[in-house]
Write a protein that binds this DNA or RNA. Sequence first.
DNA 1: AGGTTGACCTGTCAGC
DNA 2: TGCTGACAGGTCAACC
Length: 271
Amino acid sequence: MPELPEVEVTRMGIAPYLTGARIASIRLGKALRWPLGCDVAFLVGQRIHGVQRRGKYLVLALDDGILLIHLGMSGRLNFAPELGLPGVHDHFDLLVSASGGIRLHDPRRFGAVVWAPAVDKGMGLKLLGHLGREPLGEDFDALAFALEIKQHKAAIKQVLLAGQVVVGVGNIYANEVLFLAKINPRRSACKIGVQRLKQLALAIQDTLRQAIGYGGSTLKDFRGAHGEHGFFQLHAQVYGRQGEPCVACGRAIKLVQQGQRSTYYCAHCQR
DNA sequence: AGGTTGACCTGTCAGC
DNA sequence: TGCTGACAGGTCAACC
C-alpha cells in the first residue's frame, strides 16, 4: 500500500496530536516484521518532539532515541480520542492520554514499529542508512538524480523501486511517473538520456505532490489518520488500466511482470 | 558489487 | 458452496 504520499498524508494527520505529547501507554498485539527493540516501559513517559518522514518510514523523535513506524503493504495508522477495543488486526497502540492515541491496523503484518537509539545507530542505521534521496526534499537535484540513475544497469522501474537512488516511489507511482516521462519501464537505466531522466525527476515530484493533495491512493486498505480514503487512484493514467485506452494515444495499456510486480505501460508512448 | 529471487503474512477474488 | 491458486501498496536476506 503505502508509498510516500500515503505515509505523508498519515504523518500530517497524526503529527498535530502527537507533537509535544507524552507517551501514556503502549499496547503490542501480534508480532510485526521486527521486534520493538526495547521495553515498553522504557518508552512510557517519554515526550514526542516531532513526527517526521524518511522515505516510507515515519520517524517519531523521542526524549531518548527515535520510534520508526512502517506501514508495510497493508498498514494504516489512525488517530482517535477514544481508541476502543482492538480488532484482530490492530497490532500496536500508542496512547498519549487515558484513551486516545494512534493505532496501527495491519492485516498482513509486513509493517513494523522499531525503537532505535538514533537515526545513525543500530536499527535506525540498518533501516534508514542506505535510503536514497528524498524526492520532495529541498535539496533534491534533478541532474544529480539523473546521473546516479545512469549508474545502474537494471530496468529503470526496478531501480526506482529499489529506493537506493530515490525513496518513496512504490509500484503505483513508479508506473505513473514512467508514463509521464515517456520511458519504457523495462529499459536499462544506464541507456536513458540525461534530459529524459531529468524529466523523470520532475514527473516524480509532480506526481507525488499531486497524490498527497488527493489524500494518497486507496486501493484496498489505506486510510488517512481519521479513516478517510485517498483518491489518487481515480486519476491514475496507467496503473490498473490494462487493456484500456492510453489517455495520450488511445492504444491499449499493456500489463507485464517485472520482478514479481505488475507493470502497466503504453508500448507506443513509452520507449 | 550489483542484480535477481524467495520469503514474510493475510485477505480477496477468479476459476473450477 | 467450497476448495485452490494467483495476486496485492514493501523490502530484507540470500543467492548468482
